[in-house]
């Protein structure tokens, strides 16, 4: 439904989007994830025909956004970062105007306006001026605007930005319910949002795609290192040096020690399963092994890892596993605080 090939956008000397390619199947929700300034909005603006790309090609619903802009726009609903409202118009007037310029035939305008107001739950403010609405309502009127002409493709730039927790949940539910009939691309920098709403994620950083997969696969396979959670009862002594001594282990991070019980996160080289060796090391010391399980990195950690790796030089990325592990553990410690922030957001 959406095809983006080798898209590059430069503003003067700055490259906002650099050789980005991805595609979205019909009825799918694609999450566009990245830190602020990563090029999410620019990519969306190219997709909606707001600005042309410097290089590359984008097609929406089979129409090239540059060659056949009117056809492509007719099939696209777009919610920009700030909802494009005319403050002096009432919601109803505004949506009626939008219906006219989106090419909704006059006969079905009233019906379409009513439907979109119901879907976006703004019927109760239909005769209030847009300028007098709260942030949450503005966002929803913006959504109603995007849905108005019942487009095949919806492009939503941070649809939950500035909403309160209840509204965020409502909006996510709404977006999920729209999938199937509509193909949706949404951008966000809030990670739980992607895990909860999207079927597929494109992580973008500094204008480049750094990962593209389902949230589950990303969590499972894109971890830079494999981590194992181990809880040991040593009865007193420190277990860290012993665990560190196991071949394949690159780093041992102690999380807590209580009543002689130590909890560790053991990072190993990628593809090197150290669980067997860990068990025999613990047992040979005569300690009790209380728990041993693989740690799956959360999306936050992967995200931070990917976007921080990108900030290192390419040489560092290609360097030894020891180095990349260093980056990863920095990322995961930062991710702890990030995760808390993210959760309180949700």
């Amino acid at each position: 439904m959406i095809e983006v090939q080798h898209l590059t956008k430069r503003y003067g000397q700055t490259t906002a989007v650099d050789d980005v390619s991805f595609s979205v199947a019909k009825g799918e929700i694609l999450g566009f994830l990245g830190p602020n300034g990563a090029g999410k909005t620019t990519t969306m603006r190219v997709l909606t025909g707001y600005m042309p790309a410097t290089h590359g090609k984008a097609t929406v619903a089979g129409y090239d956004v540059f060659e056949q802009p009117v056809e492509a726009k007719r099939r696209t609903g777009y919610l920009p970062e700030t909802p494009p409202l005319y403050p002096e118009m009432t919601v109803h007037e505004y949506l009626t105007f939008v219906a006219a310029i989106k090419g909704v035939p006059p006969a079905s305008r009233t019906r379409q306006v009513d439907t979109s107001m119901q879907t976006a739950r703004v019927t109760d403010v239909a005769y209030r001026r847009c300028g007098a609405l709260s942030k949450g309502y503005r966002q929803r009127v913006g959504l109603a605007q995007a849905l108005l002409h019942n487009p095949e493709v919806l492009i939503l730039d941070e649809p939950t930005a500035g909403l309160d927790p209840k509204q965020i949940i409502d909006t996510r539910e709404l977006i999920k319910s729209l999938a199937g009939d509509h193909t949706i691309v949404l951008s966000t920098h809030i990670l739980p949002e992607v895990a909860q709403t999207c079927q597929r994620v494109v992580i973008i950083n500094k204008g480049r795609v750094v990962a593209e997969d389902t949230p589950d696969n990303l969590t499972a396979s894109l971890a830079g290192v494999e981590a194992i959670y181990v809880q040991v009862d040593t009865g007193g002594g420190d277990a860290a040096p012993v665990l560190q001594g196991v071949t394949g282990v690159v780093r041992v991070v102690g999380t807590e020690a209580r009543d002689g019980r130590f909890s560790f996160e053991v990072h190993s080289e990628r593809g090197h399963d150290v669980r067997r060796d860990l068990v025999s090391a613990v047992v040979s010391q005569g300690w009790g092994l209380l728990e041993l399980r693989p740690v799956r990195l959360s999306l936050e950690e992967i995200f931070l890892q990917l976007t921080m790796e990108e900030s290192e030089s390419d040489a560092a990325r290609a360097a030894s596993s020891r180095d990349s592990d260093g980056v990863a553990s920095e990322a995961s410690s930062a991710a702890d605080s990030g995760a808390q922030g993210g959760n309180s957001d949700a």
């Binding site: 909606t48 025909g49 802009p69 777009y78 920009p80 494009p84 310029i101 989106k102 605007q145």
Partner: peptide, 14 residues
């Protein structure tokens, strides 16, 4: 200034 240009330019208008 108000960002509504984005609405006009992404609508199927010439």
């Amino acid at each position: 200034r108000s960002g509504t240009m984005e609405l006009l330019l992404t609508s199927p208008l010439r």
